[in-house]
Design a protein around this nucleic acid. Structure first.
Lengths: 269, 269
DNA sequence: CTGCTGCATTGACGCAGAACAACAAGACCC
DNA sequence: GGGTCTTGTTGTTCTGCGTCAATGCAGCAG
């Protein structure tokens, strides 16, 4: 996932990364210090008063790194905890009754996974790591209780859920009425922006998901995705080598995503 | 979006357009008795203890009926209140920067509208009545404060948001990988189910939204929607006359929506 | 090295559904 | 009554993208 890292090495969790703790209380659950986490402005702690932060820290536990391809939780399981991605990346995907699978999102450090389980206390999707990933687990019942006492935390939880709503709605627009070209451009821009806000390069990164995943997420066939990468490359918008992507012309990518190649007034897919 | 956008400015309220917004408070804002509302199991009161209900009632106000085609709030406006539909129906729709409009949902009695504004304190979509509609307004800051004190209310608010997440994700599946036929069947079934749970007929109803709205929502051209209605009718699955729809073969509609006419293992759009 | 396996790319072809266009049916107004 | 506007239906044409199929290529085991 990191620029230039061909092997899915553990993504540097920058400061606050204390992988070498000796006094391990438990092997796979380590008390987390949100107050010193580099992701705190993106994650749950944002908006929580300094003085309340230790209460949150007390219920959050960091899990040991999970290898790629493993589930954090499965569709249908009882809701136990929400997960905050610390490093690496996660896809969430749901199987419908007729056997179709749909990827509902890709999740990067600082993002919360599992929010759709709050409606029925059962996970509505499976969360699978796309590479070696570390997460923080936040037991929901304790979070809920805490949200009653800490207004900032309650507000932030609602904000994160609402943000996911907005994102899903943008995806609906994308999948409902944009061309394949526009969809892929929009995805790349979304990833680029999210990486940038986490301190990584906006113009070069490794895609942790497969072409299959991308196609499924965007409602396209794998072959179409592949062809688009090729086209973008020959148009000098991207440089693509396997999972590694360099954005050569960010401006043009924006134009493609927003207006499309067929003129500004086309209003359909 | 960036360059050639013909100034798709966020619409602002026309002067004199807010007659039902201000006006005499006593006339258009009536204290609501959630405890006796027939929609309480669907709406915010669900899960709130009998004894706490009066606190909720104190902040909820019922507005006088809004004629069809009028906005409850507009994209870009500051978040003031959430709205619970009491009767009638509402569509929410968002204008993207490049001028595309996407309907993000249809909302029936008991459903909450405006939740996507919690992420940025600004409405991310416009809510427009599809017919004469009455709503309850719930000032968000007071609701938030109340949610801190009443665990059941907090839980229900989260549940409603999460439910909308799940719905959006199902829509993604629908729009991303189902045929036009499957999409329309799924929409009709969704409406049917929702009507039923509100005590109306599951097999005969009037669609309050136009064919245009349906097409936009499902990611289809109007013409396709129209043709599908015709086809369903000649297949004796529906009887359609303008807005009025009778479901003649609910079973078959389920089959169409779930598996599709082209065999059980097709996995495409 | 060789073969195997899983992903990615490329080509050829066909079809679902979009675009274009004309028309029908209400609804509303003068 | 007869215009005009809006909304829905139907016919025809055209195309973006899905499907099928073959090939390329990296990683891994033996």
């Amino acid at each position: 996932m990191l620029p230039g890292a061909p092997a899915p090495v553990i993504m540097c969790a920058k400061p606050g990364d204390d992988r070498h703790v000796k006094d391990v209380p438990s092997l796979n659950q380590i008390r987390q210090a949100c107050s010193s986490c580099s992701l705190r402005q993106l994650c749950l702690p944002y908006g929580v008063a300094e003085t309340d932060l230790d209460q949150l820290e007390r219920i959050v536990s960091r899990r040991k790194p999970v290898p790629g391809g493993e589930p954090l939780f499965r569709q249908g399981e009882q809701l136990g905890a929400l997960y905050a991605v610390r490093s690496g990346s996660v896809k969430t995907h749901a199987l419908s009754r007729d056997g179709n699978e749909q990827i509902t999102g890709f999740h990067f450090p600082g993002e919360l996974v599992g929010l759709d389980a709050l409606s029925a206390d059962v996970h509505g999707c499976t969360a699978t790591t796309l590479e070696t990933t570390t997460v923080c687990a936040i037991p929901f019942d304790r979070l809920d209780e805490l949200a009653g006492r800490i207004p900032g935390l309650r507000r932030q939880l609602l904000r994160l859920m609402s943000r996911e709503l907005v994102e899903d709605e943008q995806m609906l627009l994308l999948v409902g009425q944009k061309t394949a070209e526009q969809r892929l451009a929009a995805l790349l821009l979304s990833i680029s922006t999210r990486f940038q806000s986490r301190g990584y390069s906006a113009t070069e990164f490794n895609l942790s998901m497969s072409r299959d995943d991308i196609g499924n997420y965007l409602g396209l066939a794998v072959e179409t995705v592949s062809r688009l990468f090729t086209r973008f490359q020959s148009d000098r918008v991207l440089r693509v080598r396997r999972k590694n992507v360099q954005i050569l012309d960010l401006e043009r990518l924006h134009v493609i995503a927003g207006v499309g190649p067929s003129g500004p007034s086309r209003a359909q897919a």
